[in-house]
Every structure is written in structure tokens, then in C-alpha cells.
Amino acid sequence: MLLKVRDLRVYYDTVAGVVKAVDGVSLSVERGEIVGLAGESGSGKTTMARAIMRLLPSNARIVSGEIVLDGVDVLSLSESELKDFRWKKVSMVFQGAMNALNPVLRVGEQIAEVLVEKAGYDKRRAWSRVEELFKLVGIDPSRTRDYPHEFSGGMRQRAVIAMAIALNPDLVIADEPVTALDVVVQSKILDLLKRLRDELGISVLLITHDLSVIAEACDRTAIMYAGRIVEYGSTEEVFEEPLHPYTRALISAFPSITGERRSFEPIKGDPPNMLNLPPGCAFHPRCPKAFDKCSKEVPELKEVKGRLVACHLWG
């Protein structure tokens, strides 16, 4: 087991009240697998990523829980220990990072800088490593001295991924890595992530709102709703036979270019107000299968048919 998150709770103190962004989440990632963390806006998926990176904003509190990465207790690391942890153990591709490259620095230079500053590479070794990384992510190494504006969108995203894997981390957290990219580029970036998993044995936690991206790239999938995981299992099983009513409804909300043209099963209502969550299961006001118990007790994440489900329908 590479990453183990146990009963994590991260709350934000806001002027309007306490937002329980992540409220009792347990999640594990094995070596060499791509795990998808899917959910709609406000479900807590990005907070999860930031907590694992120890990059939470100042109004966030870790109320309880444990994060262990390769035997290291992440939540107890000191500031100086974090310097050896980020980039080397875990790195993150932020949403929109491809547009956050420094426009006045050569792309290669920005990656070399990481190698020099975080791992003490000398300049020459850093540049040869940059060339190696370019090859690895599928950019012509002759372009290390280009500026970001000379790169296409897909190449910039490849460069950002090259930077993330520069110091051989065990885990890369990719937050919406293909959102806003065109279809063909999207498909090539997902193929790249799969190839890096196969060739380097890297693990990826892929965060996205898009279930078709999950279906394309992830070995296992966790579905989040209102700060909790509602279902977690092998991607094929989750899509084949979703056990949680929310998973089922969410999958049916994604149209497909192939196969039968199903009709949508719209989910009624709006996502919950995170400042004022409904009691019991947060999904119960929108759930077609809700019964008494659902509005009273929060369902625990339990093993059902070889995966984890948090729903009273399953006992």
C-alpha cells in the first residue's frame, strides 16, 4: 500500500460558518495504479488533494484522521521535512497549471530550477535530466529552450507533467489534468499518464468531475459526494454495476458516443449547501430510493460485493 488515508476530516472556518469539506474519508492507493477521485463541485475532492500535499489554506483545519504515504505520517511532518516530501514523494499537477508556467522563462529552465533547488542538481546534470524528461513525456528534447507561448496547450500540459515527475515521486496527484483541453489532446494526455504508470510504476490520484475521463484512465474509482466517499472499487465494477444510487445517477448523466443511446436519468434538485448539510445521508433529499433511515443516520462506508459503499440500501 502506497497511500493510506484514514477517517480524514478537513473543515474550513468561513464567515458564514463551518464547511465540512472532507468529513471522514478513508482511501488507499496501491503502487502503480491510477485511482480516480470523482465528484461534482464542492464534493471535497480538491481539498483531499491539498490535504495529502499539506497545502491547505490557512482557514482549513484538519480535525481528525491520518495520512500515511510510503510509511511516512504526513500530518506530523515539520516544515523542513515537508521540503523533502513534496516533489520527491508526492507531487501535484494543479488545475490549469499549464497556463501558470512563467511566460518569461524557458520551459526547460523552469523544470531545471526544480531539480537544482529541491534536489541539489548542478546545472549541467539538471539540463540533461530535463531532456530525458522531455523524451519521457513525448516532447522533442530540442525544444527545452522554448518559451511557454511557443508550446501548444497539449505540450504545456506535458511539460507540467514532466515537472511533476522530475524527482521520481511515488505519487502524482493530478487535479483535472485534461479539463479545458481539446478531445484529441485530452486522449493523448490520458494515454501519457497510463504509460508513465506502466513504465515508471508511478501511482496517480486523478481528480476529475468527468466520469468519462475516469472510465478511460483509472484502475479504481472513488466517488465523492458532499465531503464523503459514497462508493469505492474497481472502475470496471463500479461502472458495470454501480451500487450507490448517486453513482448510478451520475454515470447515467454522462452521454456516450458509442453503444446504445440511453435516456438520461436526471438527478432531481441541487447539490447540497455545504454550510447546512441535510441530516443522515447527504444525498437522501435527491435519492429516488431513500427511506426513513436515510434521513436519520449517516451511512458508514462498508464492504459490499468486494467494494466499499456508503448506503443504507446495502445494510
Binding site: V183, S212, A215, F254, I257, T258
Partner: peptide, 15 residues
């Protein structure tokens, strides 16, 4: 043809 062959499919087996 190219475009359709790359559209992500929300079904892991078909994908």
C-alpha cells in the same frame, strides 16, 4: 473519424 475515435467513453470496457 479521428475526433470520434478519441472522444472519452464513460464505460471502461468500451473505452
Amino acid at each position: 473519424k479521428v475526433l470520434i475515435s478519441h472522444v472519452p467513453i464513460p464505460d471502461p470496457k468500451l473505452a
